[in-house]
Design a protein around this nucleic acid. Sequence first.
DNA 1: ACTTCATATAAGTCGTTGCTTATACATTGG
DNA 2: CCAATGTATAAGCAACGACTTATATGAAGT
Lengths: 105, 105
Amino acid sequence: MQTEDCIFRALADPSRRAIFERLTLGEAAVKDLTARFAISQPAVSQHLAALRNAGLVRARREGRLVYYEVEPRGLSPLVDWISNYQAFWKERLQRLEQLLEKMEP
Amino acid sequence: MQTEDCIFRALADPSRRAIFERLTLGEAAVKDLTARFAISQPAVSQHLAALRNAGLVRARREGRLVYYEVEPRGLSPLVDWISNYQAFWKERLQRLEQLLEKMEP
DNA sequence: ACTTCATATAAGTCGTTGCTTATACATTGG
DNA sequence: CCAATGTATAAGCAACGACTTATATGAAGT
């Protein structure tokens, strides 16, 4: 859980991404999400479980309602993954700059 | 094609992500990838097609060999998506984006 | 306690996907 | 031209994933 794999798979589904994007605007209860999206309540709950399993959202119970909100640092594994390949561009950029320097004189 | 959806789906598969990560180390022909990964050559070709369809890699034919390499700006839709929904990382990502901008021919 | 409302889980269905083998296409060398 | 090599596509299959309906759990009001 909470691995890159989970995150990529969680965000690969359009419905789930839409739910996540909705949650970035602010917390919402399951019934709100169910009302807004054209899928059944169990489908919403399943999507939320996948997002939570990926560490992207967290749940808070309040009476009968369960509010979901974005986990603030949930996307950082994704950012880290991308940043790992920053080295790829850095290296290429350096080579390019070296080339330009040699052409300078 | 080349939409967020494609990119997320492309990177959701571990084998495909591994191939992409290998390509960030440098270009490789299909036969090299086939030798390195424990899946058949058609499977590799199919993964490469998915990555290319997502705009993450590009192919160059050289004789009978087909070399695949990372598309430099391929990850930027992902970066854009993240920065849209997580203002917290915007600064860090902007640095990455600036790096990518410099790669533009 | 019973009913109602909100959510989660179970079970089943159906389309998708990642793999395989077999085959077609493309390029090079004899 | 033919054989060999490298890659892509086709067809089929087993596993997975996203959805459904039905049911279980949990909490509040009467």
